[in-house]
């Protein structure tokens, strides 16, 4: 059997193996209620990873996702009282516009995406500090429940976050598989110069990819702030690393072009299981960041398409 043909199947095989290992070590892990609540807890991270998938799919990166989510938790906490449900629209619009800015800087101004998104992330951080006065903010509990209570409840044993996650996944899957945008992004990821030579407006589609990434990072921040009933300029720190890990272990390589949002769903579940297994095997929370850093290196090394990188800079 050819290893290259097996490669696309690695992510879900990894997921099953990990679940099996943890399940054998602790059978109560496999209870449906436990698995569902595990999946529910990871949803904000999943939404961020979903957005990042678009940036990575075209061969870029979005390092602003975490700062964006941070800023949105503050925006949501500050404006919930005055805007009600419309605060969600404000958040998503802000994410979309800032993502567009990153995309514009990358494509039209030739600033590499890791720098442009880092800079936009800096802007987000400043806005968050300014709006919050550098404090942790709380949402009014009754108002939160009235406006966004539907996001975080449970029906039976199914957390409502899962419905949001599935809904967004369906939309992204539709974009990826059934729209011109999705096709164009695939073309750009597979070979940007060829895509441009074929008459595709590469810049416009790349800007859109960054905008989607920003908008989804904003949704992640919104959901996170609703869950915590508050916001702060650094509250979502620690999201970026596992989100990138989720995209890469899912099988979307840093070089872009293959993989996609469904892969990211599997990748996020792998991250969730790794986290849970660390608890079961008594690995302290303080070691998580190290483990994920190492997993990231391994994941990149295994997935990256070296034929696309003539010179590795």
């Amino acid at each position: 059997m050819d290893i290259q043909r097996l490669k696309p199947h690695f992510p879900w095989i990894t997921l099953l193996v990990l679940v099996a290992i943890v399940g054998v070590a602790d059978p109560s892990f496999l209870k449906p209620a436990n698995l569902l609540s595990l999946a529910g807890d990871i949803v904000p991270l999943f939404i961020m990873a979903l957005g990042l998938t678009f940036a990575i799919y075209i061969g870029g990166i979005d390092l602003s996702a975490q700062s964006m989510a941070n800023m949105i938790t503050v925006v949501a906490s500050v404006y919930l009282a005055s805007l009600g449900i419309w605060v969600a629209a404000l958040c998503i619009l802000a994410g979309f516009m800032l993502g567009t800015l990153s995309g514009y800087l990358t494509t039209r101004m030739y600033v590499p995406s890791f720098i442009s998104t880092l800079a936009v992330g800096g802007v987000c951080f400043s806005v968050a500090q300014w709006l919050s006065g550098n404090r942790a903010l709380n949402m009014d509990a009754t108002q939160r429940n009235e406006t966004f209570g539907w996001m975080i409840g449970r029906t039976g044993i199914v957390p409502h976050e899962l419905f949001i996650a599935l809904g967004l996944l369906a939309i992204c899957l539709l974009i990826e598989r059934r729209t011109i945008l999705g096709r164009a992004l695939k073309a750009v990821g597979a070979g940007e110069l060829a895509a441009a030579a074929s008459g595709l407006n590469v810049a416009r589609y790349k800007i859109l990819a960054f905008a989607i990434s920003g908008a989804l990072a904003a949704v992640a921040g919104l959901l996170f702030s609703v869950k915590l009933s508050g916001g702060a300029p650094t509250i979502a720190n620690g999201f970026l690393l596992p989100a990138i890990v989720a995209v890469l272990v899912g099988g979307t390589p840093l070089t872009g072009g293959v993989g996609g949002v469904l892969n990211t769903a599997i990748g996020t579940l792998i991250v969730a299981v790794i986290r849970a297994s660390m608890l079961y095997f008594g690995i302290a929370a303080t070691q998580q960041q190290m483990v994920f850093g190492l997993v990231l290196i391994v994941a990149i090394a295994l997935t990256i398409d070296r034929s696309k990188l003539r010179i590795v800079k």
Binding site: L254, A284, T286, Q289, M290, F292, I297, I304, V312, K313
Partner: peptide, 26 residues
């Protein structure tokens, strides 16, 4: 990691930076 595994430097170093912070926390 960057040269032998042929990983672009920004990602290799970002990941190792995370490992470094993680080790410091540990």
């Amino acid at each position: 990691v960057h040269v032998r595994l042929k990983i672009p430097s920004f990602m290799a170093s970002l990941a190792l930076g995370f490992v470094g912070t993680g080790a410091a926390i540990l």
